[in-house]
Simulated assay, not measured.
Amino acid sequence: MNEGPVIGGLTAGGAAAGSVAGIAGRSAASGRTVWRWPGMAGAALALIATVYAHVAAGHVDPMTTLISDYALLDTSALALVCGTIMLAIGSVWVAYGLAQVDPARSAAARVLFIAGAVGLLLTAAFTTDAAPGTMSAGGEIHRWSAAVVFTALPCAGWMLGKRFRSPALSVVSVLSVVFLATFLAAHPGSLVSDLIHGPEYYGLVQRLLVLSDATVVFLAAMSLGESHGGGKGGEDGEGIVLPLRRRTGTGGPSGEAGASPLLSTAMRPALGIAVQSASRGAAAVQSPASNVTSPCLPMGLGSA
């Protein structure tokens, strides 16, 4: 009996089942999603609150003053603090969502989003100094916390843009870095501030920087609702599904020829019939041999 094709078919059928199971497992793993609206809502509400703070402040010049100055006014302080907290909540939600949809390769981005959220909460808790020349502990905490926010969020957005192949997220992150560099150069006290007339517009640059950072959180939260399988087996920590290899009559692989998993699955009933037929044929061959006397058979083939 030639058992090579039957055993090879059974091997291909088993491998096809493993391939189908591996593909199904990969789809289930990459299909994990979380609610994205809390992060998106946090960023959107932060922008709405900031706009309301601008309107409520009234007489503050957005070109030459900072957003932090709105926290010093009774009419706009509450709106600005609430908006800052909402953006922090959105950042925390993005970090939580990344831990659900991409826990293996988003650790750095999660840390940056958490750092940005902590920085936002500190800027809300500690207001800036009222007078330009005044230096206080609370004012220093506010300034350094803002520096963490403006640095962490663009970096996290850039990482996610590359990881999730999101051009919009990457572009907004780059714009945020450009706004940050411009703001630092135009801020009063920098070496080139007077050369580029920075005090005349550095407040506007900071508002664009805040807008870009809130947009980074919004787009990052939006990406949580999408499936990111990576496109390659094993890239996200999952098992690699190897292709089946068709066997020759000698039982070895036939080079680059491969068997389709779907074809192997369809051949399972036929393989089962082939196995049963082979078993019956083997029994039919052995039955006449038992009726022949030992002298008529070659040595070793007679009945015991």
Rank of each mutant, 00 (worst) to 15 (best):
Y96N: 03
M86L: 15
I196E: 04
S212R: 10
H54E: 13
G25C: 01
A168Q: 11
A46Y: 02
G9I: 00
T75C: 12
A15W: 03
A124M: 14
G230C: 08
V171W: 13
Y201Q: 13
D213I: 08
M222L: 07
I273P: 00
R36V: 02
K162Q: 10
A117V: 06
G14Q: 06
F164V: 10
T65K: 00
V55L: 13
S176C: 08
A56G: 03
G230M: 08
D61E: 14
L244G: 01
S223I: 04
T84G: 11
A57S: 10
L211I: 05
C296M: 03
G251A: 12
G252Y: 11
Y201M: 08
A16P: 01
S290Y: 02
P261H: 11
A115V: 14
A266I: 14
G237K: 00
I89W: 09
S290I: 09
L72H: 08
V241S: 02
S166D: 15
A53D: 07
A107Q: 14
N291R: 13
G90S: 12
D61N: 15
G230P: 11
R247E: 05
S76P: 05
A289I: 02
A44Q: 09
F218N: 07
M63T: 13
V149E: 06
A185F: 03
L208R: 02
L224S: 13
G234N: 11
G281D: 11
G90A: 05
A24P: 01
D194Y: 10
V60C: 02
P295C: 12
F179Q: 10
A99E: 08
P132Y: 04
E226A: 06
G133K: 05
P295R: 02
Q276Y: 07
P188E: 12
M135N: 05
G161R: 04
A71F: 01
G133R: 15
L224F: 00
G18W: 07
V174M: 12
R36L: 07
S190M: 12
T128W: 09
A124K: 02
V172A: 10
G9P: 13
A12W: 01
L175H: 01
F218T: 08
A71N: 09
L195K: 12
P154G: 15
A15V: 02
A124G: 15
E200Y: 07
W144R: 11
P253V: 06
A15T: 05
L208S: 08
E226I: 10
N2C: 06
T151C: 00
I196V: 10
D69S: 03
R163W: 04
L78G: 03
V174F: 08
F218S: 12
A284L: 14
R280A: 06
A44L: 15
V111M: 04
A257S: 14
C155P: 00
G300F: 07
